[in-house]
Design a protein around this nucleic acid. Structure first.
Lengths: 219, 219
DNA sequence: ACCTGAACACCGTTCAAGT
DNA sequence: ACCTGAACACCGTTCAAGT
């Protein structure tokens, strides 16, 4: 919305241009976020990376919050649109959910940014549009459509935010290991598949498909 | 596991006891987390609150990470057990999911702690145990049971982590407001119910129930 | 218009020293 | 056993001052 300063075209033969531009600041900031997440982005590191005093960053972008806002907007531009495939309502809607999940998983920095600012709803917008359209085509309208769309999107967003957290943790407190082992005693096949993250793709597919089928069933 | 120091009983008439005990540190830390979340818990504020030098905290609990670990363990103790109600497999399993969600929502500090340390799996353990039992009683075992349990728990955890993020944000960037308005044009009833968080309880119920029904259906 | 250093108020953590 | 102050290496942010 309100950029702090406009970035002028770099003048060629005129007076020496600025040492950094607003765009350069944002580019470097985005690179830092992609490399180390939001918690690895500090105003001072950013300034050092650009070879400039910290205070210069403030002149270009305002403050850290405004900087993150700008990064969020950039990533949103990059989200693209949802491709819907399939011919039955169920497969088409499931394909939207899958594309939504893929889009987010392919952009880990998006999760980091969105978490920091509590903007989870933003990353669901393109898919939301597509879901509204598909449910309408399947004859679901009004309050029932709202419920269906939200149910699918909660599923997608929750799945994405969790599968990274629930799968990637090698060292858990010892007590937890013991509890986990105890949960499935007597069914070793269950135990194996319960602890290994397994195939999140298959899990996601089953979960979403079963829910969509129920949502589309007349009651 | 390995507590940094043991907390002795406060001696009555003997030599003057310690100015703070390990338990007092943990109590105050927990209070700070409940009031302001993990990001409001700093070693220095904690020391000030206890009327003691910062370095004293370090002697009692090691460092901030160990302190948080200890708080997590405390909250886990407090999680209690899952009450299963209902007579059909579907209602019993849905009741577990609902109790799981309630337990977490009733403990906002649990979410804060678990997020900071990436221990999402911990808060799912009691319900996991109950789910394994109920799916087994319904004749679901082995890999299929693992899939079913994980599907339900991803649903629960995702729902909980999201419903706070997706519902509570009054001021979103202006561009988002515009997008939201555009998504549901032509169906005002849909628009209303899509933007208002509405009834997350009902939404959760529909989502979980429909998924459990599918998971229990023979294929 | 653009950049600087100094300064303020915060962090977590270590260490040597006190009793 | 328990606590202290000093110190280090970090933060975000403001401000007056330079060109």
């Amino acid at each position: 919305m309100e950029r702090t300063r406009a970035t002028p075209k770099p003048a060629q033969g005129g007076p020496a241009g600025p040492r950094v531009t607003r765009d350069a600041v944002l580019d470097t900031a985005m690179r830092l976020v992609m490399e180390t997440g939001t918690e690895g982005l500090s105003m001072r590191k950013l300034a050092a990376e650009l070879g400039v005093a910290v205070t210069s960053i403030y002149w270009h972008v305002g403050n850290r919050e405004a900087l993150i806002d700008e990064l969020v907007e950039r990533v949103l531009q990059d989200m693209g649109t949802i491709r819907v495939t399939g011919r039955t309502p169920v497969t088409r809607i499931v394909s939207i959910a899958q594309a939504n999940r893929r889009m987010i998983l392919d952009r880990p920095h998006l999760i980091s940014l969105v978490r920091e600012r509590g903007l989870e709803s933003l990353m669901m917008l393109p898919a939301r549009r597509a879901l509204v359209r598909e449910f309408a085509a399947a004859g679901v309208h009004g309050a029932r459509a709202a419920l269906a769309v939200q149910a699918v999107q909660f599923q997608v967003a929750g799945f994405v935010m969790l599968e990274r957290a629930l799968t990637g943790h090698p060292q858990e407190p010892a007590q937890v290991q013991a509890w986990l082992a105890e949960v499935a005693e007597g069914d070793p096949e269950l135990a194996d598949n319960l602890h290994t993250p397994g195939a999140p793709d298959a899990l996601f597919d089953v979960a979403v498909r079963s829910m969509v089928e129920s949502l589309l069933r007349e009651d």
